[in-house]
Amino acid sequence: MAGNEQHDVIVARDVRKTYAENGVPVEAVRGVSFTITSGEFSALVGPSGSGKTTLLNIISGLDSLTSGEVLLDGRELSAMSGRELSDYRRDSVGFIFQAYNLIPVLTVEENVEYVMLLQGVAKDERRERVHTILTELGLEGFAHRLPPKLSGGQQQRVAVARAIVSEPALILADEPTANLDSKTGAELLDMMRELNQRRGMTFLFSTHDTMIMERARRLITLKDGMIDSDTGES
């Protein structure tokens, strides 16, 4: 649960990532440094290939960095084992993906409770929290439906429910509105903004959607793997 006192959730120092593409080294991220404080509603923005998704992958521990340092809640990311990273993501990070990426064979309810199952939350508590979050996101009638039976907007709301149900400190959202129409996208963003304000959850988006840019309180613009500008939190 995000606390009320502000603290550094992410500290990135001189982060670099070099890929080998067909044997040729490609610098996707080149010396990026920034800090995300709890309660922020920020966005990494920039054109395709600017390195925002790579940076998001590194921050979340999904990908390794070539050099530099990332501290997550004060813990050095590169010092964590694979298992510790899994546990960190399970307990501290919620993901919202561009293509929803719900598990199609699990019902809405099962998708949302999956992370809590990994956390070992008791069944009654899981069900209670799932019910609460689905009601909050207007999905109460869809608990037993499979994701393919839902609209894109509904699926993304389920993805949001999955990301926030275990009340992680940090929500990472990669182009969450890319597959939604503008009205649904706006509704979803407003909902996330409300969660940010009401629950104090930290949101970090990766996007080039103007709707998100308009709503984000801080924009970190990336260009060619480097920070081009950082508005700071407004």
Binding site: L62, G82, R83, S86, D87, R90, F95, F97, N101, L118
Partner: peptide, 16 residues
């Protein structure tokens, strides 16, 4: 593959 990536992303351990 992508789905497995999602499962790993949300905290499923390698053993899981």
């Amino acid at each position: 593959m992508f789905e497995f990536g999602v499962l790993r992303a949300v905290g499923t351990r390698p053993g899981g």
